[in-house]
Design a protein around this nucleic acid. Sequence first.
DNA 1: ATTACTATGGACAAGATTGTCGATAGCATC
DNA 2: GATGCTATCGACAATCTTGTCCATAGTAAT
Lengths: 222, 222
Amino acid sequence: MARARKVRRDPAAPAKAPRRRRDAAVARADILDAAARRLVLSGSSGIRLQEVAAEAGVSHPTVLHHFGSRELLVEAVIARALEGIHQSLVSAIQAASALEERHLQAMIDAVADALGRGGHGRVILWLALEGHPISAGAGLSSVVEAAHAVRKASCKGAAAPREDTARVVVLAALTLVASSVLGPTIFSNVGLGGDEAAMARFRGWLTRVLWTHLDDAAPAAP
Amino acid sequence: MARARKVRRDPAAPAKAPRRRRDAAVARADILDAAARRLVLSGSSGIRLQEVAAEAGVSHPTVLHHFGSRELLVEAVIARALEGIHQSLVSAIQAASALEERHLQAMIDAVADALGRGGHGRVILWLALEGHPISAGAGLSSVVEAAHAVRKASCKGAAAPREDTARVVVLAALTLVASSVLGPTIFSNVGLGGDEAAMARFRGWLTRVLWTHLDDAAPAAP
DNA sequence: ATTACTATGGACAAGATTGTCGATAGCATC
DNA sequence: GATGCTATCGACAATCTTGTCCATAGTAAT
């Protein structure tokens, strides 16, 4: 009975790569990096252990060893991605402190870049579509507070209600997130050209529209 | 050899439901309906033959019989969904012919409703994220043309370049599509309330912003 | 009734995917 | 060098998913 399995190395084996042993933390980070790329590309439901493992340079049981299950890996990579998105957006926004048009322009460009680079916009939409709660959006509330405080202290529609500022922020957020995913398609579709320059011009135009509104904002009808 | 398999009915079988035979066109439609629901919910990559078959009330070989392969089923359901989205948006837009603010308001509300009902906004974003070409957006070009023609004929920024009108349309499109998916999340996040009434108020605000811009549109700096 | 056509589903096959188990290999410490 | 810890991986198992094959069951025409 059964001691048949002999795991001795086959001498004709094709030159096994020597087993590389990382520190556990490093291995986890490498695996999370690979999983994050899959998250951007295919969403959380598109994460496959085999692919993640291959991209991280390990075997798939190693991934399970470090994360316990696919589900826990997905949770971990989503949590890290949301944290990264939050950091990225905060630093992109807080670079513009004063309320001048060029600062608004810089902020919008920085946010658009943050959403584009690293596929943060894609991740936000993947997660929203897949039904995951998106806690990173909580940062928007602080953005609204900061923007409204500066607005009241300045002469730019100081009488406008907080709701108006919130809506300006929401409009910018929705536009930039959507633009990061279907910007090129839509832009080239209406004859604006789908390249980065066209999107930059659109952001400049958006900045002027929002800036003008911040000026005008007389508390109009409901 | 091998004629062993005898498919004779087991007399103890649990009350087989009588086999129901649809017309081929009806069966295809039923299956496409089920697949379309899966498309809205999980995207094209989330379509499973078993689930679609069960939801359509057939077995999965029947689905393959009518569509040949999963890939062809996915192509068919995407094509039908894009066609439906196109029709839905066209009828929502062409209801507003003249250029008055209440017409713009009605148009924006109708488009938002079309994107929300039936999950058209979700489908657009699923397909964009999954990398499928979205031909339905081609309708935007005609929207731009129509809007710009009306604009030139009226007194609303008649001197504005076509680019400006195109950007207004793009801004509305991006905002409404994004709003259909992550509207509730974002709105409640900034304290505007995530219910339908809040989103309706936002659309009213958006209408005024766009309308004001259409007035102001002096051809400003780049 | 008989025949022809085809929509339908049960059983099976092949591959993909997640998860388990045990052996091995790298590294630190003694 | 010997020992202990554990990161790593090969092999296997269980389940899911797609696709094939074929017998069966409706339906219409003869």
